[in-house]
Design a protein around this nucleic acid. Structure first.
Lengths: 121, 121
DNA sequence: ATGAGACATTGACAGCCATCAATATGATGC
DNA sequence: GCATCATATTGATGGCTGTCAATGTCTCAT
């Protein structure tokens, strides 16, 4: 890779142009298709309720049924169902139906995303 | 504060309950105040344009002036300015005004968030 | 079959957000 | 002063999103 990372000087005041220092700036590392995918998943995480949901599920050693999830949140049942779907479609959680009940758990990817985010400041 | 949890009132004696088998479930690791803060920053990242912006800035060894940033995006100048402000208010980038021009760069925290996100799948 | 319970889906609505054009601000130069 | 340029801010607008009530679907028990 020819990353032309010439040690460009700090904001230059040498010339009239703001950025005419011919040093070509380094290209971005992500292409739009990648940022689209990442942003999609980040959007699924960028909600306090869904973050708490994923956190709750990631803490368990077994899957939780929806009634237990519902008890942890103030929103109504359809709203919880809505958030669960968004997390599931983002691949962060998964579910299984057993009889009348549905059980949800954090996927490996979901746990990784959550712990990565939790470790940041 | 956070007294929303009720581990005491858990009826563990249901016979046919969906989820009364395994005792009390593990509490979440994050309190709502933490998820609010995290979600705020995630919201700043959860946009393809802003992700590309942060990525572009994080790749540079020196700050970029706005005119150079503008050239990399199809949006109009006020829109770019709007996104730069959101990233700055989230602490992911910072800026400095020198004369007529403004120079932006990724903060250390911004670079950490970006690389953490880029490493996930 | 009928009813009830668990969960998902639909439809509506308010608030937020990305975007643009228009305008403001502030610095530089004439 | 005045004009010009770079950037920020404002205001408007269409689209997206979180929420709820109402309803649908599926399963199980009677």
């Amino acid at each position: 890779m020819d990353t032309a990372q010439s040690p460009t000087e700090k904001p230059a005041e040498e010339e009239l142009a703001c950025c005419a220092s011919d040093g070509p700036l380094s290209p971005p590392a992500l292409v739009p298709s990648e940022t689209d995918t990442l942003a999609e998943r980040l959007k699924a995480l960028a909600d306090p309720t869904r973050l708490r949901m994923l956190d709750l599920l990631a803490q368990q050693s077994a899957a939780l049924c929806v009634c237990e999830i519902n008890e942890h949140f103030a929103q109504r049942q359809p709203t919880i169902s809505h958030h669960l779907r968004i997390l599931r479609e983002a691949g962060l959680i998964d579910c299984e139906k057993r009889g009348v009940w549905a059980y949800y758990w954090a996927t490996e990817s979901g746990s990784e995303w959550l712990s990565a985010v939790k470790g940041l400041r």
